[in-house]
């Protein structure tokens, strides 16, 4: 008997601090699998953002630079420009990327920086206790939208994958989910494509990964997982929104 499924080398063999049913863990693994496949762990520089995924360096066995909240794409730009021979990726949440860091992600994408951005959209600020995020659904209750997000006051959830796909500098932009095996397999493929863009120097690549946040949604993991499929995917459709090199 041989082992046909194991922890990817690029992922450290440690317990994560993520909550039960939190998809950060699954997305971490898919990113690590992509690194293993391209054999790039030794030349990769990760840029950690501020949020539940701030401990990127505890889980990925790669060099990591910690960026201030929202600034990972700028930090990654500096690192990649200084070391264009390295693989540079950022891993950010929705508060980090789509709120405070909107300017940085849009301009890094627009400059076509040869980096890969992994954006985890779980419609909330997880680490700080479940506040409303730019991707919070209309009507969704959070600790700062107690009676549900009201679009008249709080606007609408932002669709980042589509938004970045408008920019000429972007090579690849796709949205994925990990709420069922089929979507996980698809997400695995998309994430590998995103890294392939960088490995083959085809330009800026962006992955938006929908994720559940059971703790801050106040749901058990299975119900939260269902919510991704029932509520999030209809509003945040999965798919490839830009793929200039047709990888």
């Amino acid at each position: 008997m041989r082992q046909v499924f194991a922890r990817p080398e690029s992922l450290k063999d440690v317990q994560t601090h993520f909550c039960p049913g939190c998809n950060h863990g699954s997305i971490h693994r898919l990113v690590a699998e992509a690194m293993d496949e391209f054999g790039i762990r030794g030349e990769t520089i990760g840029v950690a953002s501020v949020g539940c995924s701030v401990f990127l360096y505890n889980y990925f066995d790669v060099d990591v630079i910690e960026a201030p909240h929202g600034r990972a794409p700028a930090v990654a730009t500096g690192a990649k420009r200084a070391r264009p021979d390295r693989i540079v990726f950022t891993y950010q949440g929705d508060g980090d990327l789509a709120a405070i860091g909107t300017s940085e992600i849009i301009h890094a994408a627009n400059r076509g920086e040869a980096i890969t951005v992994i954006f985890v959209n779980n419609t909330t600020y997880g680490m700080t206790g479940g506040q409303m995020a730019p991707t919070t659904m209309v009507g969704q209750k959070t600790s700062t939208s107690p009676s549900g997000r009201n679009q008249a006051k709080d606007g609408y959830p932002i669709r980042m994958a589509e938004l970045l796909a408008q920019l000429e500098g972007v090579g690849f932009s796709a949205r994925v989910a990990v709420n069922n095996p089929k979507n996980v397999i698809q997400a695995k493929r998309m994430i590998k494509t995103a890294f392939r863009y960088q490995v083959e120097n085809k330009g800026f690549s962006f992955i938006e990964a929908l994720a559940a946040c059971p703790t801050n949604w106040g749901m058990n993991p299975l119900a939260a997982n269902e919510r991704v499929g029932d509520e999030m995917i209809p509003y945040f459709p999965l798919g490839v929104y830009r793929n200039t090199a047709n990888l």
Binding site: A74, V75, A79, A82, R83, H107
Partner: peptide, 20 residues
Amino acid sequence: IQAESEIAAINMLLGASATG
């Protein structure tokens, strides 16, 4: 790089400096 803001510029500096 002419960054999109001074905030982005200082963070690019951070990233580049971290690589030595």
